[in-house]
């Protein structure tokens, strides 16, 4: 058998065993909602979160989990006396509960951020905004993922 063959017996065995090895590796355990709770607590402690003021937009059906558009907006005048200082995004089912954190100030003018994230599974995504007076506002939204970012 010459080396010119794209799929020589040796190649098939090499790749085949590689794929088999991949198939045998257990996927990293996906996070549970409790991990998102823990991540939230590590960042914000036990302060109460009020529902509202935060609008989190993620498509209800994400066709591609590798790139999901996410938009978060907080209803705030963004003045020196009343502004958002931080927005955190948590995932309930990704291997890591943290998705992104944004730091803002009165100079932001508008508390809105758009980005693209990865989703490892059909899940709930949470957004929590911290105001300059320490108050927390939050919301969550659900997205069905048809093509999951499998091991992210």
């Amino acid at each position: 058998m010459s080396d010119k063959h794209l799929l020589s017996r040796r190649r098939v065995l090499e790749y085949g065993s590689g794929l088999l090895a991949i198939a045998m590796i257990p996927a990293p355990a996906l996070a549970a909602p409790t991990d998102a709770d823990a991540a939230h607590q590590a960042l914000f402690g036990d302060r109460t979160v009020t529902e509202g003021r935060v609008v989190l937009k993620v498509p209800p059906i994400s066709e591609n989990g590798y790139s999901v558009p996410l938009s978060v907006e907080v209803d705030s005048p963004m003045t020196e006396d009343d502004h958002v200082v931080r927005i955190a995004i948590f995932s309930e089912e990704n291997p890591l509960p943290d998705v992104a954190r944004f730091e803002l100030g009165p100079r932001a003018g508008k508390a809105r951020i758009d980005t693209r994230i990865r989703l490892g599974n059909t899940q709930k995504i949470r957004a929590v905004a911290e105001m300059n007076d320490g108050a927390l506002y939050g919301t969550s939204t659900f997205s069905i993922v048809t093509l999951a970012a499998c091991v992210l």
């Binding site: 943290d98 730091e103 100030g105 809105r112 951020i113 980005t115």
Partner: peptide, 24 residues
């Protein structure tokens, strides 16, 4: 010189990170 917006990114941010934000 003054930071007006910052983001901490984690592996859950998609490849080729894209951000839209605002400033006055």
């Amino acid at each position: 010189g003054e930071t007006v917006f910052a983001a901490e990114l984690f592996p859950a941010v998609a490849a080729d990170p894209f951000l839209t934000f605002y400033t006055r």
